[in-house]
Design a protein around this nucleic acid. Structure first.
Lengths: 225, 225
DNA sequence: ACCTGAACACCGTTCAAGT
DNA sequence: ACCTGAACACCGTTCAAGT
């Protein structure tokens, strides 16, 4: 809705990207608590420039997470036209878990940020949308129980990511293994063993965490004046 | 092995506990980044005293996590003699997930700490032991597939805890729901769908992260002199 | 319009002085 | 033997001065 990409000076645009790239590499290889000073240095910019682009370290992390989410969503969309709906769904899950395996704590940053960042919210919505489509196809094909939602699946996937984070250096196959367990959990249910509770939906989350503010005076993002 | 509880002065002992209690409450209600200054103040001791007892903030967090783990292990042991082996196993899982639900980020602190803290290791070993016993009974009874290990189950449980952390304020039944999904995943397998990989074991972890040092010169714990 | 780096605030940790 | 709080170091963030 507020998607007008402001025209920026060439050097500003370049610095933005350099910070993003430097941060991406440092976070990936050394975890989330590398200093912003070091990131600025590696990017070849001053501290101030970094904070001009990303008002807070958390925003910087969020920006990277968002890029990953978009990439994941994109490759998920390609899978929507795959031949086997079930394989497509699990290929997508495997991709996401694999990304976590490579990326230290980046994906975990999603957990705390249901509400925090607006762009993260958008990314989430996007991913849930893709997953929902993949899931629906698999359910229509009768290979996945239909009393689960995409968010249910996302929660289970987070378990796999957790396992990957702490165990994949010991045995990388832990990811496939736990995807198999998810697959077992998702097999069409016999009606005698229904799931308790209701399938979680995006509206549930939106209702619980309403958007902060519809954009008011002196926007902190720096869109005006 | 080095279990000799040093005799401490009465006030020291009391301060130790007061810090632990103050930290427990503040962490539980307000998350892991309350300042140590505030904790010391609430405990009614000086900063220095806090750091005498817990050389680092992380140690303080670990101490609390360890207490929770021991409590969980204890109540798990009671369940070992329950009538229905399967119910006993899942009651245990539900207890642990419930603890997470009440405790903000405490349980999550376990994730990063496979190796870090020696007492956390001990706590982990204890919990895995209890879970292993409960699991073995359920497997012997034929109600749980026998190609999974206690650590497999722990990984799945962490997924549930994650879901609880981010969604239980919206719908608390999310925990039961995902325990049901675990239950489905653990149903005795048909041999045509084996799990990939090997069941993870404690020895895998120990082999990958050998203990730091068998206790040498000038112990940082302050046991000598 | 954007960049820079010195200065600030905050918080975990240390340590000299007390009892 | 243990307690205390002032001092230190570090790191995220701000801002006056530059181009």
């Amino acid at each position: 809705m507020s998607g007008e990409e402001r025209r920026r000076r060439a050097d500003a645009e370049r610095n933005h990207r350099r910070v993003l790239d430097a941060a991406e590499e440092l976070f990936r290889t050394r975890g989330l608590d590398v200093g912003v000073g070091e990131i600025a240095e590696r990017a070849g910019v001053g501290r101030g420039t970094l904070f001009r682009n990303f008002p807070t370290k958390e925003d910087l992390i969020a920006a990277i997470v968002v890029e990953r989410m978009q990439a994941a969503a994109a490759s998920g969309r390609e899978l929507q036209s795959a031949a086997d709906p079930t394989d497509a769904l699990f290929a997508f899950l495997e991709q996401m878990a694999g990304a976590q395996q490579v990326n230290r704590g980046l994906f975990e940053a999603i957990a705390d940020t249901w509400l925090v960042n607006e762009e993260i919210r958008a990314g989430h919505t996007e991913i849930i949308g893709v997953m929902d489509a993949l899931l629906a196809r698999a359910q229509a094909a009768g290979s996945v129980r239909d009393d689960v939602s995409a968010i249910d699946v996302l929660f289970m996937l987070k378990g796999v990511c957790e396992a990957a984070a702490s165990f994949s250096t010991i045995d990388p196959r832990i990811v496939e293994r736990h995807l198999d367990l998810i697959r077992a959990a998702l097999q069409p249910a016999d009606a005698s063993r229904p799931l308790r509770g209701q399938p979680p939906t995006l509206s549930d989350i939106e209702a619980a965490f309403p958007e902060p503010a519809p954009a008011g005076d002196s926007a902190p993002t720096g869109q005006a004046a």
